[in-house]
Amino acid sequence: MTAAGLPMTVREPGLPDRVRIHEVGPRDGLQNEKTVVPLEVKAEFVHRLAAAGLGTIEATSFVHPRWVPQLADAEQLMPLLADVDARLPVLVPNERGLERALALGVREIAVFGSATESFAKANLNRTVEESLEMFAPVVARAKDAGLRVRGYLSMCFGDPWEGPVPVPQVVGVSRRLLELGCDELSLGDTIGVATPGHVGALLGALRAAGVPAAALAVHFHDTYGQALANTLAALRHGVTTVDASAGGLGGCPYAKSATGNLATEDLVWMLDGLGIATGVDLGLLTATSVWMADRLGRPSPSRTVRALSRQET
C-alpha cells in the first residue's frame, strides 16, 4: 500500500487508545453468502485474517447443518485452525451445539438471542423468555468448563415486524443475558436502522442500569450507510469492542437494500485516522478480502477495499 493509501492521523479527545475488532467474516459473513465456500478456502481465510493482525476471529457455527448449510463443516474446520494465533470463538445455539464444540476443544462460545418477540419466534421458534431459558444451561455448562461466553442480542434498534425497539426493552433483555453469565454482550443492529443518537440513548440507558461499557460490543449493519457513524458514537460512550466482517461479507435477510456487516477495512481506516490502535495491517487485510471476493465471484462492497485495490492496479 502506498502512502496515499493511509489516512492522516488526527486524535479526538475522549476516544479509547485501542479497539478490539471482533472479526465475524468467517461465521456471520459466510453463513449469509449464497455461495458455499469450500473447507480449504475457509481455513485459509481464517489464517490470512490472523496474519493480518486480527486477534479475535469468529470461526464458525455449531448450528444444525440443515439450518445453516454454509457452515455444515464446523467439525472438519476447527482442527485445521489449531495453529492459528488468535482467539477463535464459535456460535452455539443450544446444549447439543455446545457438546459438539467442547468435543473439539473450543475455548470460547457465543449464544444468539433477540430483544424482540417477533424475531425470537422467527429465528429461534421461541419467545424471548423461552430462549433465555434455553441459553441458561448452555452458559452455565460453558462457564463450568472454563469457557468465555459472549451473548449476541439482535434487533436492538429496529425490528422488521415491530418497528423501532423501545430502549427499556433492550436494556431488560441485555441485563438478563449478562445475569446468565455472559462475559460480553454484543448489541446488534440487525437490519441496520440505528442512528448515532439512538446508539447513544441505548448505551446511556445501559450505563444507568449498571451495565459497564467494558462488557459491551457493538455490531452494526450498513443498510443505510450509518455503521461507521454509529460506531463512532459507541466509541464516544466508552465501548472498545467492535464487530466487523472482512470485505463486508454477509447481509441481512430482512432488508432488501442491506449491504451487510460493517466492513472491517472501513472500520480500520477510520480507527487508523483517529490514531486508535487495532493491531491490524490494513494492506494485508485488504488483500485478504480481495482474495475472498475472487473466490465468491463478486467484488467486495467495502469502499476501502475498492479504493485501495484501485491504487494497487
Rank of each mutant, 00 (worst) to 15 (best):
T9Q: 12
R11L: 15
E12D: 10
P16I: 12
D17Y: 11
R18L: 05
R27G: 00
L30K: 00
L30R: 01
L30N: 01
N32D: 04
N32L: 05
E33H: 08
T35G: 12
T35D: 13
T35K: 14
V36N: 14
V41K: 08
K42H: 07
R48V: 04
G53K: 12
E58Y: 11
F62T: 00
W67K: 06
A72P: 06
L81M: 10
V84P: 10
D85R: 15
R96M: 12
G97R: 04
A101W: 13
R107F: 08
I109E: 03
V111F: 14
F112G: 03
F112S: 05
A115V: 00
S118W: 09
N123E: 06
S131C: 10
E133Y: 03
A136C: 10
A136H: 11
G151C: 03
M155Q: 03
D159L: 00
V165S: 12
V165D: 13
V167G: 14
L177S: 05
E179N: 06
G188P: 04
D189V: 06
T190M: 09
G192P: 08
T195K: 15
T195P: 15
H198C: 13
L202D: 12
L203Q: 07
R207T: 06
A208R: 04
A214M: 05
A215G: 02
H221Q: 05
A229W: 11
N230C: 07
L232F: 11
A234E: 05
G251K: 12
C252Q: 06
C252T: 13
P253F: 13
A255K: 10
K256R: 15
G260Y: 08
E265L: 09
V268I: 06
T278V: 00
G279F: 09
D281C: 09
G283Q: 09
S302E: 02
R303G: 02
T304R: 09
V305N: 02
E312Y: 08
